[in-house]
Write a protein that binds this DNA or RNA. Sequence first.
DNA 1: GAAAATAGTGAACTTGAATTCACAAATTTA
DNA 2: TAAATTTGTGAATTCAAGTTCACTATTTTC
Lengths: 202, 202
Amino acid sequence: MAYQRSTLMQERLAENRQRILQSARKLVARGGFRMAAIAAVAEDCGLSTGAIYRYFPSKSALFIEVLSSAVAHECEILAEIVDGDGTATQRLRDAVESFARRALQGPYLAYAFIAEPADPDVEAARILCRRDFGDVFKRLLRKGIASGEFPKQSVDVSAACIVGAFTEALVRPVEHATKPKSGDALVRAIVEFCARAVTRTA
Amino acid sequence: MAYQRSTLMQERLAENRQRILQSARKLVARGGFRMAAIAAVAEDCGLSTGAIYRYFPSKSALFIEVLSSAVAHECEILAEIVDGDGTATQRLRDAVESFARRALQGPYLAYAFIAEPADPDVEAARILCRRDFGDVFKRLLRKGIASGEFPKQSVDVSAACIVGAFTEALVRPVEHATKPKSGDALVRAIVEFCARAVTRTA
DNA sequence: GAAAATAGTGAACTTGAATTCACAAATTTA
DNA sequence: TAAATTTGTGAATTCAAGTTCACTATTTTC
């Protein structure tokens, strides 16, 4: 007779799948893809390397899922802020702050999403994610420009610059020889930078 | 009797060394470290893989030299602009434009210098290079703040944001679904973004 | 509880790229 | 030009990391 998974079993499998994704995310956040070898992921989530391949067909597939689910989550949060109430300037500040604050927990994660080179298939997935991600900022920039709050500017370039600015600023502090800024001060400085960059200048 | 290299021979060796460095730089500029396998470098400069190891003890050593010589060159050019005449704002514009324009020739090169993950020893070298590089911008920011042209701000963060902004903006256009901007328009948009970001806002 | 099916294990296999090395070519000495 | 030394070659080796697979453990069916 056909084998039928019990509800309990299904739950356990789903849980394992999640655990794998979480471990992968954690390791990427800690040190980029280099830290996230399959063996390391397996070790972290208490499974064997072989087991990973029961849940994901390849390393790429696993990381594509890590990437896209995290980005989708980010986009939801940002979209809520961007489409909310208040001036475009304030919404930009809030969006940048929100993103920066979360990214600060795992600087490498933000970095991996945005820049770290990977296999071509992961790269392809990233391009899609990036578009979604950039679109949120572009939408906000367009609104601000339409309302006259922001000066005319290339929304493509400004969006890219914003993303680049805080990625860089977030990933870098690690290597500052001087005392690393407190998270709060860092986030505030980044927000100010971005706010000045898109708003009208004298 | 002791073997003595003729002047001609010495020149040829030095030339080979340069050729290797050039090939490596070219390949990195074209597609990041991934494209720059030792075999590819060897092929490009018309030597065998074994020969490369007569000139450089390891792949890392080779790339560290590519990196630091290119960054040193950049820093010289930028320093000249930054320490020249004119308002801080104008010098910032010129510096960003100059860098962006050159980076545009080989987007991946700028990217590899700034962000691409690599072996720990290359990473260590990059940190040193980045400090030199960031220092040029910080010096400019400090001057502008002192003269009252720029509002008070974290020079560390702003410098990082500037570097991040144009790196991102330069590397990304490749994947814009929409028509890629012409180089000129792109550079201009980046310059405007950075100029607004550091100068006083209304 | 025994048989059938699925899930998990980890050592072995595969792959791709860095590095080495036995040898060939070229250069210098005498 | 012959011997000695250095430089160049590229196939073989090493190494790291992804993937597979023969086997064990667990779960489901009857």
